[in-house]
Design a protein around this nucleic acid. Structure first.
Length: 352
DNA sequence: AAGACGTGGGT
DNA sequence: TACCCAAGTCT
């Protein structure tokens, strides 16, 4: 028996957390939990998992829901393509597999939103198949313990880790093994300042012996940030406000937001109001500017969104552009919106 | 195959 | 502050 495996498995039997998706093998629930947990901390995803299984207990329930409703439930979690793909795939399974989640790895992998990691996680946890689920935790544990300095963010490097993972999972209880490795990475072999002195593997760990713990795993890519400037208009008339759905291939696709003019710099207010885009939205002589927020910053991994919200009220109701949706203020919280807008709405809309 | 895609917590 | 990173996938 491999000593690495037996140490990890024993550690897991002692320290594994009790998590809501740990007491089921239902592939739908495992799938849902894996999608929610992608690039997301457990404590952030946990409540979303509970509300999703509460709202959509079966794949058919999810398939029968509207995408708007799914996105609303996903609001605040980020990476919204996960929700769109989850919903798409639920409908695909309902239509092509009679609502029953497929068991064959290749088939699972072909589903939209399911990549190599997630397919392995579902196959192993739900169907006892020996596919290594190599996530960020596992890269870290393997690179440190075995002293592998190949970068984890290139396809060549990933192959090396997946190959090692495939060797290690042979002859184990695959679901337990994969979860043990990930849990060990999440709790014991942490990214920053792991408590190596209390680690049951430290006597055999390459990184510990060679003082390379802080240097492994190796990552190459640095993210660059792009600056954007969003001028939002909180337009109201009586109980009505207007929203617009983001349909472009861009951040927050299929979420709603206030009508907005994006500028390339932090345009001054007078200059902004003189722009033709603004005039297409509203007549300058038909509005009262109530309030202008300062420029605020909303940080994304690849973007720095500078935004402000200009609150105006219309003197007379006029025909608005067709893409705008008229919403009664009391219904506004039914729409899925980006976090920055949610924060604004909570602070500024009197929710009767 | 490099870059895009959200949000929040930690240092 | 700025940066890293968290159960990745898609294009």
């Amino acid at each position: 028996m491999d000593i690495f495996n037996s140490l990890i498995h024993h550690w897991y039997s002692l320290y594994k957390r009790n998590l809501p998706w740990r007491d089921t093998r239902n592939p739908y629930y495992i799938w849902l939990s894996e999608i929610i947990l992608q690039q997301t901390r457990i404590e952030q995803g946990r409540a979303y998992y509970m509300s999703f299984i509460g709202e959509f207990p079966t794949i058919s329930d999810l398939a029968n829901a509207s995408e708007d409703k799914v996105l609303k439930l996903w609001q605040g979690l980020g990476y919204y393509s996960r929700a769109r793909n989850l919903h798409f795939t639920a409908r695909y399974i309902a239509e092509h597999f009679n609502g029953k989640f497929p068991e064959e790895y290749r088939l699972i992998l072909s589903l939209k939103g399911i990549g190599e990691y997630t397919a392995a996680a579902i196959s192993s946890i739900s169907f006892n198949q020996e596919y290594p689920a190599v996530d960020g935790n596992v890269y870290r544990v393997l690179s440190r313990f075995y002293g592998i300095s190949d970068p984890i963010d290139t396809s060549a490097g990933k192959k090396i880790f997946v190959k090692l993972g495939a060797e290690l999972i042979k002859g184990t209880d695959p679901g337990m093994h994969n979860q043990a490795l990930m849990e060990f990475g999440a709790l014991q072999c942490t990214p920053q300042k792991p408590d190596c002195l209390r680690c049951p593997l430290h006597e055999r760990c390459y990184a510990f012996a060679n003082k390379k713990v802080a240097d492994l795993p190796v990552k190459l890519k640095k993210t660059t940030q792009r600056h954007r400037y969003f001028n939002y208009f909180d337009i109201s008339h009586g109980d009505s406000v207007w929203l617009k759905k983001r349909v472009e291939k861009d951040i927050w696709k299929n979420l709603f937001e206030f009508p907005m003019i994006e500028t390339s710099v932090a345009t001054g207010f007078e200059e902004l109001m003189a722009m033709s885009e603004v005039n297409q939205l509203m007549d300058a002589d038909n509005l009262v500017v109530e309030k202008i927020t300062d420029w605020k910053i909303h940080l994304l991994t690849h973007q720095k969104i500078n935004y402000r919200i200009i609150k105006v009220s219309l003197l007379q109701e006029k025909e608005m552009p067709v893409e705008l949706i008229r919403v009664n203020k009391k219904d506004i919280f039914n729409f899925a919106v980006p976090k920055l807008l949610e924060t604004y709405l909570i602070r500024n809309i009197e929710n009767g």
